[in-house]
Every structure is written in C-alpha cells, then in structure tokens.
Simulated assay, not measured.
Amino acid sequence: MSVPHADSLFFRTLEPPEGWEEAGREAVAASQRARMLDAVVRAVGDRGYANATVADIVGLAGVSRRTFYEHFDDKQDCFLAAYRTGVAVVIERVVATTAATPEDDWRERLRVGLAAYTAVLADHATFARTLLIDVLGAGREAVELRQRLYEQFVALFHTLSERAAAIDPAIAPVPDVFLRAVVGGIGELVQQHILSEGAESLEELTPTLVKVAETVIEFGGRRA
C-alpha cells in the first residue's frame, strides 16, 4: 500500500494505531485521504489556489479521480479539509507544549507556545504558506475558517493574560480587542517573513513575536 510522505503534516495525524502497512481497508482510505490532503497543499503552494486543479491533486497523490470524489466534493472541499486538519495539528502542538510548562511562569508559557508555533510551521513550510497566505484566495468559507483559527489563538492568549493577572497584581487582564490585535499582528509578521525569507527560517522570528505579545500582556491592561 502506498503511504503518505513520512514528513507530511497529515501522515502522523491520520496514521492508524497499528501503522499503515499492518492495517486493513480503513487504513487504505486513511492513506488516500492523507495523500490527497498533502497533495492539495503542495498543488496550491506550487500553482496558487486559483490555478491548482483536481488533476494536479490526484496526480501528486497517486490516486484516481474516482477516489478523489469518494472523499471530497471538489477542490475547495479538499483544501478546507487540509486546512482544518493542519490547523488542528498546530493548535495541538502549541497547547501540549504550554501545558508542560509551570503555570506560575506566564512568560515562559508564552515563549514556549510561540516557539512551538513557529517550529511546526518551519517544519511544514508549504502548509505554513497555505495557513497564512493561500487561504486568502480560496473563497469566503476559507477566509471564515481562517478567522475561526484566529479566535482560537485569541482564546489561548486570553487564558494566558488571565493567568498573568492572577500572578502579578500590577497586571490586569487584557481586553480581547487588544488580544485580537496581537494575533493579527503576529499573523502579519509571520506572513511577511514567509514571503521575504521563507517559512523554513520562521523560528528566527520567535523572539520578536514573544516581545510583541509580552508587551501587550504586561501593559495592555495594566492597572493604574
């Protein structure tokens, strides 16, 4: 059975517990799906969303058009599935990393969370471009999905801000409107870095992102 690339963002996410080679019919379907999710990200990364076609996707995935339509309605359905799956991986990585950090050190939680974010995007550079750039040309539903991702990050920063306020009496919880500005600003900085330097070096941006977020959390809701 053909399996997805081992370094694909979707390989470990959809891999059956017993492994690709040992599993049965369900694993075949999971393997096909993982390969198509990987393929749509690569096709869009190479050609742009508007120019990428179902033919590109099935060619890169090594599946038939019939198999494609057994899983997805059209190109956008496949793209959105890849986006949702990849976003879940990114969020899970950030949450798991911060959860392993002491609760009473909000600055360290902020640092390791943003480090995890830039690391997973650097490890999966093509998806990083999809996450922040290509999605903007994939229609209203894709843009709305991107906005929901931003709200998930706002919620993470909200929790961090509340924890900082509980630890330091001089810090007050930051209004969500400020936190949305932080998330949007981080997205813009990451996007600019991808366009100018490439996603592979995103970890170099981590200290800047930490400083931006730390400043807003420390002073954005500061008590007089």
Rank of each mutant, 00 (worst) to 15 (best):
I217N: 02
V44D: 01
V174L: 07
A155P: 00
H71A: 08
E162T: 14
L121T: 06
Q191F: 05
F157I: 04
Y69G: 06
A6L: 13
L121P: 04
R180V: 08
M1C: 09
E108R: 05
V90F: 09
G59C: 13
L179P: 06
V120D: 06
S201E: 02
H158I: 03
R65S: 11
F153E: 09
L114N: 04
R93A: 14
L110Q: 07
G187M: 10
T101L: 03
E204H: 08
S201R: 04
F178C: 14
L37K: 01
M1D: 02
Q152H: 06
W106D: 15
V58R: 00
V120W: 02
E103M: 01
A81C: 12
D7T: 10
D123H: 09
D123N: 11
E188T: 14
P4W: 01
L60E: 03
L202F: 01
T67Q: 10
G185S: 12
E70I: 04
T13W: 14
E204P: 03
G113I: 07
A224E: 11
I194M: 05
L209C: 13
T215W: 14
G19N: 09
V44S: 07
E70F: 04
P17I: 13
D38N: 05
L121C: 07
A128Y: 05
D56Y: 05
D104N: 12
A122Q: 02
V44W: 00
E141P: 10
S201W: 05
H71L: 11
V41K: 01
S31F: 00
R65W: 00
V120E: 09
T67H: 07
V58W: 04
A165H: 00
P169V: 09
M36I: 03
V143W: 05
P102D: 08
E188L: 15
A50M: 11
S196D: 15
S8G: 08
H124W: 06
V212W: 11
L132H: 09
V120H: 08
I91D: 10
E108H: 02
R222V: 10
V154C: 03
R33F: 01
L114P: 01
N51L: 12
E103G: 00
V44M: 05
A34C: 11
